[in-house]
């Protein structure tokens, strides 16, 4: 190795380390704080450690477990609906040519440009009228529209590269429509479905203002709880609940990471989390 390439390597390594340090840095105080008991300024590490915050977090009075359950139910339901809706929509966008496709495309993409806040105020007015405000169903419905562009985009990408002749082959070998879907279509689009599902879950999981306004404070999800706790000046508890909030999202990413190719134009879903 010449001196110059060695220097280039060193510089690259230094720059990357600085970058990663910055990317991981905000997570470090969270971890430490959640186990801290007393941590006065200017100590770099806590004076005394404890599991107090974790105990409170998992006790009934913190409401964490209830909020976790709420968040999970909402996110899972929203994810399932999004996947069911985006499979046919993605197929239409990826494989069919039809009149007005550009308009449809524009409509589907519009929620990426318009902030959810601008939409949710009007929806709130509607939902109050139709009795959906302050309900879990209302919250689920309002989570759907920011997910749609990414879920449909992922599935459209999958179907754009999908060869329908496999289905014709299966049909000609005697499989009915349902079995064709189950044995031919589903395995082919499964990786894409996982990616669409990942985005749907993560986007729903991280919703705050939509849940707050439509749920009216009655539907307590983890982000709602986290905000309340963060305002209540218990740093350790805030840290612990933050970590609890992050873990399912991280786990889900690890489970689905192998389906993420990165080249999905729709990796965009992460931009909404």
């Amino acid at each position: 190795m010449t001196n110059q390439t060695r220097l280039t390597h060193l510089l690259r390594w230094l720059a990357l380390s600085a970058l990663l340090f910055w990317l991981l840095l905000p997570l470090i105080p969270l971890l430490i704080w959640s186990f801290a008991f007393r941590w006065p300024f200017p100590l770099l590490l806590p004076e005394s450690w404890s599991l107090r915050a974790w105990q409170i977090a998992f006790s009934a009075r913190s409401g964490m477990l209830a909020a976790l359950w709420n968040s999970l139910v909402i996110a899972v339901a929203v994810t399932l609906v999004s996947m069911l809706v985006s499979i046919p929509a993605g197929r239409a966008m990826g494989m069919h040519r039809f009149r007005g496709k550009r308009v449809v495309e524009f409509l589907l993409l519009a929620p990426t440009i318009v902030p959810p806040l601008a939409v949710v105020l009007g929806i709130h007015v509607l939902f109050i009228r139709y009795g959906l405000a302050d309900t879990r169903l209302g919250v689920m419905l309002v989570h759907l529209s920011p997910i749609m562009p990414y879920a449909v985009l992922v599935m459209a990408g999958v179907f754009a590269n999908y060869n329908p002749e496999y289905e014709e082959q299966a049909r000609s070998l005697g499989a009915g429509p349902l079995r064709t879907f189950w044995y031919v279509t589903l395995p082919a689009i499964f990786p894409g479905m996982m990616v669409a599902g990942l985005f749907a879950f993560l986007i729903s999981w991280s919703q705050y203002i939509t849940t707050l306004l439509i749920g009216g404070g009655f539907i307590k999800t983890l982000p709602i709880l986290l905000f309340a706790v963060a305002g209540a000046n218990d740093t350790a508890l805030t840290a612990a609940i933050s970590i609890i909030f992050v873990i399912p999202a991280l786990l889900l990413l690890l489970l689905t990471a192998r389906y993420l190719t990165g080249e999905d134009a729709a990796a965009g879903g992460f931009g909404r989390v």
Partner: peptide, 8 residues
Amino acid sequence: NLPIPHIV
């Protein structure tokens, strides 16, 4: 930190 929500 891709899946970590902004709030955190």
